[in-house]
């Protein structure tokens, strides 16, 4: 029933056509213009925000390290056994540290001094170093279990600063205090 009522309505073409012709004529001279200025303003604000916040982890860098010995992985192939240069770290107080170099009487006070002492122990004629250890001599950092990570990485950094190329970490030794 409703279908028959639709037909006369759809025949009102004349009025629709008339209206569209009028609007076409009036629109043609004025070109449609979108005002983009405010949008660009907002977009630039967003862009600046994200550019600034993206440099989030900046300031951090990396030092490449070998992994601790004696924990899985294949053992290195038959190198002649060398007595490694052991750097022993123990904790002092809640977050302090003590440094020791095995078989060396003097103990370095801080990590800069440790680097200087390690340089003194190195044998490198090109740099005028006349110590007993070649730059590729194994250096092992042996921290006690309760030494803070900061000091462990610092000791590693000191060994790298002194240009030792074969530095690795030992398993945690039992804490003495």
């Amino acid at each position: 029933m409703p279908e028959t009522q639709v037909k006369p309505n759809s025949n009102n073409d004349a009025t629709v056509h008339h209206e569209s012709r009028r609007s076409k004529r009036s629109q043609q001279p004025a070109r449609m213009q979108l005002n983009l200025t405010s949008m660009i303003d907002v977009i630039f604000q967003l862009l600046i925000y994200f550019v600034v916040t993206a440099s989030f982890a900046a300031g951090e860098g990396i030092i490449t390290a070998k992994l601790p010995q004696g924990t899985g992985g294949a053992p290195s192939k038959a190198e002649p056994p060398k007595q490694p240069l052991n750097i022993i770290l123990s904790s002092a107080g809640t977050f302090g540290y003590n440094i020791g170099i095995q078989n060396q009487p003097a103990a370095p006070r801080d990590f800069e001094q440790l680097a200087t002492m390690l340089e003194g122990l190195q044998f490198d004629p090109e740099r005028g170093r006349s110590g007993a250890y070649k730059p590729d001599h194994p250096v092992i950092i042996k921290p006690a279990g309760n030494v803070r990570w900061q000091h462990v990485v610092n000791a590693f950094n000191a060994a790298i600063t002194a240009r030792y190329s074969n530095v690795s970490f030992a398993q945690a030794t039992q804490a003495s205090n």
Partner: peptide, 19 residues
């Protein structure tokens, strides 16, 4: 954690510290 990384047959790591 370092031992666990070693066990995955990774021989080299990069320690992250400040520049």
């Amino acid at each position: 954690v370092m031992a666990a990384i070693t066990a995955a047959q990774i021989g080299k790591i990069h320690l992250v510290a400040y520049m």
